[in-house]
Nucleic acid binder design. Structure first.
Lengths: 338, 338
DNA sequence: TTGTAGGCGTTATCAA
DNA sequence: TTGATAACGCCTACAA
């Protein structure tokens, strides 16, 4: 059994009060006493029991993140970068990160959120992959639970979030493709419930409009943000009677999947057909050919989300208004004819 | 403020005892009472506070894993697969997984382990990347703290671990390379402190011996289990006066890094120089050319480690003796001349 | 079948 | 500057 604060106090012939205060750095304890306490505490290997402290202080010093997928997708570069950012900054702020996994909008997801909030598992939550109608926001606001989100919902909440201007990003991408001479530009979508889909699709529409191109709904396909989804959607697009000359994937993984379909069809990406994604994950540098993408600084955003959340948890003032970040168009060979 | 068990009891005009027992499924509570309790508990959104329960039961229902790296390396396929396995099986066993990160053998690592053990953060720990002299094992054994390990240490402990026969795996790989006509087979090592390095290197030596090949120490290079380390080590090997005709990476990432060096030198992997790794991560299927490797079932091992650990935590009997798994040699084009 | 009461290990209030 | 004591919310002998 590890020693408790009682054991330390007994050894020193002090009260547990004094030990506690000495260790927590209060200034109403004699310096000499403090040194003795710290010394023996270290010797005895005393570490305060987290559960007891949590119970008393009503704080867990933990931040929660529930991955909106059905399986742990740590190998998905988006999530791995996002979580690395969350974890790093959480540590900076003296918090730990608790991670779980739940499929979006299903019973299990609701259960997990309820358990964490009502069971006081964490002091605050990070949300991502926001849905247009997002029950998580409703729930957390109704319980007054601290959270920050990567992306926004459609409702008229004004929850704190950090957003990326996906509309503008894709719009610029379309401009670039048009400049390259493309007229038949396909778009592989994400599930329609997601805000990122709405934003980026609006950018697609706006880009077409800017170029006076009509919307051809046969050039729309639905993916699921995974490589496989992109692959299947691209296969479908490429077997059209009049296939597209350019394909936009709603994210990089989708585009990478589409790239595979392009290869399998014996087409040369870049020269014969353009392909581009969104996110700016590292993999896009190493594909054949390297992939044009719209880069958003996921790691840095994750860290900002934590910093913002910690302020909320501590009840500090937070500057009003959401933060909107402009993504950066990165042009590579996958959209260049030569 | 979320409701406590008191609130529920008050609402029902019952004692908190009865509420607690009804919710925990004891059979000494009237069925009708139980139903009423469950009903109102749900209505009120009551969830037991974890900290209180933990304090009382002296259990956290959490399992800890401290990644032995200086940064979160979720994108490293080895870790992502390992953690996915840990997380999935932990959930099955009604545990949560707490993850942190610390650089091996440094002060911060020691601190983290001590905090988790003495602060009773978790009920048990998973170790990986075992060192030959591993203070973690000494520490956990001396405190009688439950843990299971992926790999073994050199010392004469008999802690519970699951091992993979790396020696035999590499030995077979060497045989295969010799069959392909190679005489100058290089080996890119991991840090010497790691048990996996010792095992696999022994396999290398044994393989050479089987073929009556001498050990040429100029064909040994040191990596750090990363792509970059493998890349740098391979560059060095390839600029030797008498370069190797085959290179073994101590793990797949090392081999993938080496593959890049091979490409940069204008060599054809497979045809002109053989290259192979160890682990069997998915990436090896998608390299150019696909990479020969020695596959170990990381995901399944992770799950077994959790199952074993849960038994230890519950004080159940555990079959004596470590578990040794035979890896599987997977031959692909990177070691085939045609 | 239900209720009373004690304590898990801390921190915080108040008195000495 | 230090100490006694009361919670924090829950589980669990033990009593009723």
């Amino acid at each position: 059994m590890p020693p408790t604060i009682r054991d330390v106090a007994k050894r020193l012939n002090l009260s547990i009060t004094t030990v506690s205060r000495a260790l927590d750095g209060y200034d109403d304890v004699a310096e000499e006493t403090r040194q003795r306490v710290i010394q023996t505490a270290r010797e005895m290997g005393y570490v305060p029991t987290r559960a007891a402290r949590q119970l008393r202080k009503k704080r867990t010093d933990m931040i929660g993140y529930i991955m909106p997928t059905s399986q742990p997708r740590f190998s998905d570069p988006f999530f791995s970068e996002f979580i690395a950012g969350l974890g790093d900054e959480a540590l900076n702020q003296h918090f730990e990160l608790l991670i779980s996994v739940a499929p979006p909008d299903e019973e299990a997801e609701i259960k997990t959120y309820q358990n964490w909030v009502f069971g006081r598992r964490v002091d605050g939550l990070i949300l991502s992959r926001m849905r247009q109608q997002d029950w998580r926001v409703d729930f957390l606001e109704s319980t007054q639970f601290p959270f920050t989100a990567f992306g926004r919902t459609n409702s008229n909440h004004h929850h704190p979030y950090i957003g990326v201007d996906g509309k503008n990003g894709i719009r610029q991408l379309v401009h670039h493709l048009v400049e390259q001479g493309h007229q038949r530009i396909a778009f592989i979508c994400a599930p329609q419930t997601l805000t990122l889909q709405k934003d980026r699709f609006e950018g697609y529409l706006a880009g077409l409009k800017d170029a006076n191109l009509p919307l051809d709904t046969s050039l729309l396909a639905e993916g699921d943000l995974t490589r496989k989804g992109g692959y299947l959607a691209a296969l479908q697009l490429l077997s059209l009677p009049q296939p597209p000359t350019a394909i936009i994937g709603v994210n990089d993984l989708t585009a990478i999947g589409a790239l595979r379909a392009i290869h399998e069809k014996g087409l040369q990406a870049g020269k014969q057909i353009a392909i581009a994604g969104f996110d700016g994950i590292e993999d896009t540098e190493h594909t054949h050919p390297p992939l044009t993408t719209v880069r958003q600084p996921v790691y840095e955003i994750a860290r900002q989300l934590i910093r913002l959340l910690v302020k909320l948890i501590n009840g500090e003032e937070v500057e009003e208004g959401p933060i909107l970040i402009q993504p950066e168009l990165i042009i590579r060979n996958s959209t260049l004819r030569e």
